[in-house]
Design a protein around this nucleic acid. Sequence first.
DNA 1: TAGATTGTTAATCGATTAACAATC
DNA 2: TAGATTGTTAATCGATTAACAATC
Lengths: 212, 212
Amino acid sequence: MMQSKTISDIVIGRMPLYLRALQRMLNEQRQIASSQELGKRLGISAAQIRKDLSQFGEFGKQGTGYHIDYLVNKIQEILQVDRVWDVALVGAGDMGHALASYQGFNHRGFQIKLIFDNDPEKLGSYIGDYKVMDIADMNEEIHKAGIKIAMLAVPAAGAQEVANRLIKAGIKAVLNYAPVNLKVPVGVYVQYIDPAIHLQRMTYYLKSENDL
Amino acid sequence: MMQSKTISDIVIGRMPLYLRALQRMLNEQRQIASSQELGKRLGISAAQIRKDLSQFGEFGKQGTGYHIDYLVNKIQEILQVDRVWDVALVGAGDMGHALASYQGFNHRGFQIKLIFDNDPEKLGSYIGDYKVMDIADMNEEIHKAGIKIAMLAVPAAGAQEVANRLIKAGIKAVLNYAPVNLKVPVGVYVQYIDPAIHLQRMTYYLKSENDL
DNA sequence: TAGATTGTTAATCGATTAACAATC
DNA sequence: TAGATTGTTAATCGATTAACAATC
């Protein structure tokens, strides 16, 4: 099966932003949005939004704009979040706890189903409804559950090793909170979250003019 | 004061990645790195790395590569993380707790100095060494401390309002964990962290070929 | 000297924007 | 019909890559 046209990752990266903004508008009882309005909310040009969406189909109406609920459905289909993905969480430290209790996954296509750690003190304890399991059982449990997505919230030193084992267990997408670049085979996707990296990206612009 | 040459944000965005990888190499007792090796670690082309670095100066030696400690110092200067920035944290929920106890800021240029929340139950309690203060006192406290950077870990509904107040208090850079786009004036910088967005960006690629 | 790698230029590639016919 | 906004094409803009002289 071949994709008729490859869509660039930069476009894919904007789709979740469109989705989030549109869902917010739905909450505000809005029915219709124009590319212009959506663009204004997101700080993205209207032309860009129309171009991006047009890669996937014709979702709007000339003279009117986009029906929000229809477009939300379409983007959910495109991103395959018109279903709920089970997710494995590795690392039951502070960040792991925060992720496990995060309410934001609920209506956005994800639910944590398995939690692992290697600290004997933590094993068997509960985070929310889920028991912290031994990392040694990870391969078996992930396979059994058929889980494809993992969040990695372990210390930097062990991250690559844990990632390797996750991939062996069938994981295809990793959200990595450890401050290291992971080497992964093709067909496995990684996204990185490192607050220090994000902060360092802003300090460059904090020139003295702003310090007055 | 004018910058002789404007450097694109996409280049700025890669500098913290170079820094992190180089610091890691320092930890591994490495002294010298070539653009090729660094590129391999990061999945970035060697030409790109040389081009990026050359925007800021000539940091390498032909035939040899880059002295890691020298380059680390230079990038720290460029990003202005050759100092420690005080940071205010707003929101003492699970994510706030995780950020407050995160060890990763330590040697990367940041330390949390003030923590705010609006929940009367939390006010006065301690997270690590810091007392949770009333959001009502935010303006005064941030001004007094001269803090320019904030991390925003409050629910979506209140985020824009809190951001407005942070900006009034003199904040110039916001690391936003709330799942909303913030409207901010020019001269204020925002970075976004939303785990659901990152996950949604990967599910697109999780096509059925991978589900076998 | 021979080998390696930088810094930089020119060529390529890709993304964004502007503009407008189509049409609701 | 008049006004508005899409989807799309062509033009512009910017980023990446390839290649190589300079030089350690």
